[in-house]
Amino acid sequence: MQILYAFKGGESDNFNKDQKFLLQSIDGMYHLYLLLMSLLIEVHKKAEINIEKTQKKLLATKEDKDPNKKLIHNEVFLMLRKDTALLDDIEKHKITNWQLDDEYVDILFREILASDLYAEYMQTKTSTFKEDKDFVVDVFKEIVAPNEKLYEYIEDKNLTWLDDLPIINTAILKILKKVKQNSNPTHFVPDLYKDEDDKKFAIDLLKKTILNQTTLNAEIEGKTKNWDADRIASIDYILLKMGICEMLNFSSIPVKVTINEYLEIAKEYSTPKSSVFINGVLDKLVKEYQEGKKLNKIGRGLL
């Protein structure tokens, strides 16, 4: 959607740069994932350093000398730190942000120490794997993901990451919730694409939408005759083109799924009334396509 919004060419223009940017943007999502996972690792390292400093205090108390090491013994944090596949990818992507901008590690670490989550977790000196996992999940969900300073930092580093952040945060939570003591060695290194068809879909949707602009525009104009073109939001026009293109050219995607996806995107990026407008146009077209047998869907229940 963003690439089509910025695209000023026609059907005959070369759009290799746009396709390259699409793939780079998707790859950037994995970079953001690694950035946040490496942040968790650095926060845990900070906890370890903090205990070492406390033990070496000149006027150390009994509690300082024999601190509760439950946090640094947290099994999930240790799994992250020992995951060679994850660490290799972090190194390959040259993620050194938290060594250079370590104040963000300090901010999050202090917030964790001041939280009720931490106080409750540290009431005992031992824990089960489930308790360790629940703590890490809650820390990410309640302290890391909603942190405003971290949000501003990510915005400053890469503006497109702001759209990716909710998706990546959700993915990280799912991965943390599913981890087990015997999880496979690549548990924390997910595939960026579900399969090659997933990647191909992204490229094909961009290509087919650009290459069929004249036809798609005509379809939209035929169902918006009572609308002044200037009154239709640019984003709405793009989402309609993508939606129509998807319905006509991707036989394995159910019509209802297509419509619902674009309505959700409209709610997020366009005007308050956009989803109603888009739904009305697509609904009219679907009925017309069904009557003309233009929807060639494969599989049961895809209409």
Rank of each mutant, 00 (worst) to 15 (best):
T209L: 07
A218W: 04
T54K: 15
S25V: 00
N249S: 06
I41R: 08
L240C: 10
V255S: 04
P166V: 06
N296Y: 12
Y30T: 03
F15G: 09
S252A: 04
I298E: 02
L173Q: 15
L216G: 03
A233H: 15
W98D: 00
H93T: 08
I168Y: 08
I278L: 15
K130L: 14
K294P: 03
A229H: 09
P146M: 00
K199Y: 03
Q2L: 09
L117T: 01
N74D: 11
D88N: 10
D138T: 11
F7L: 07
M79Y: 12
K17H: 08
H31Y: 13
Y289P: 04
F201L: 14
Q24C: 10
E219I: 14
W227S: 15
S38F: 03
F15Y: 12
L263G: 02
E75A: 15
N50I: 10
L303N: 10
F15T: 03
D83N: 15
L285N: 09
D163C: 00
H44F: 02
I175A: 08
I175Y: 07
Y33M: 10
D13K: 03
V137F: 10
L108M: 13
R81Y: 08
K56D: 09
D204V: 00
K69E: 15
I167A: 12
A218F: 07
G10R: 02
Q19D: 12
G299P: 04
I203P: 08
L4V: 05
Q24Y: 05
L150H: 02
S270M: 09
G299R: 02
T128L: 11
L302A: 06
I41E: 07
L86P: 05
D66V: 12
F21P: 04
S115T: 03
L239C: 06
A114L: 15
D156N: 12
Q55A: 08
K287T: 10
D83E: 08
L263T: 11
A119N: 14
T214K: 13
N158C: 00
T61H: 05
V105S: 00
F77D: 03
I26H: 04
Q99W: 00
D101F: 02
K294H: 12
L176T: 11
I49T: 13
F109P: 01
V136Y: 09
K199N: 04
I26A: 04
Q24R: 07
R231W: 11
Y262A: 04
I51R: 01
V105A: 00
L4H: 06
Y104P: 01
L239D: 06
V189W: 14
Q181S: 14
D197S: 09
F135T: 13
D116M: 05
V257R: 02
Q99M: 08
D27L: 05
I26C: 01
I235A: 06
I265M: 12
I107T: 14
P67C: 10
E219G: 00
F201D: 05
K294R: 14
G9F: 01
K241W: 00
N279H: 14
V137M: 11
V189Q: 10
N14D: 15
I90S: 01
V179I: 15
D283T: 06
Q19T: 06
E48C: 00
L162A: 01
L159E: 15
C245K: 03
E131H: 10
K141F: 04
T84D: 13
Q290K: 06
I112V: 14
F135Y: 13
G292L: 13
G28P: 06
K20C: 03
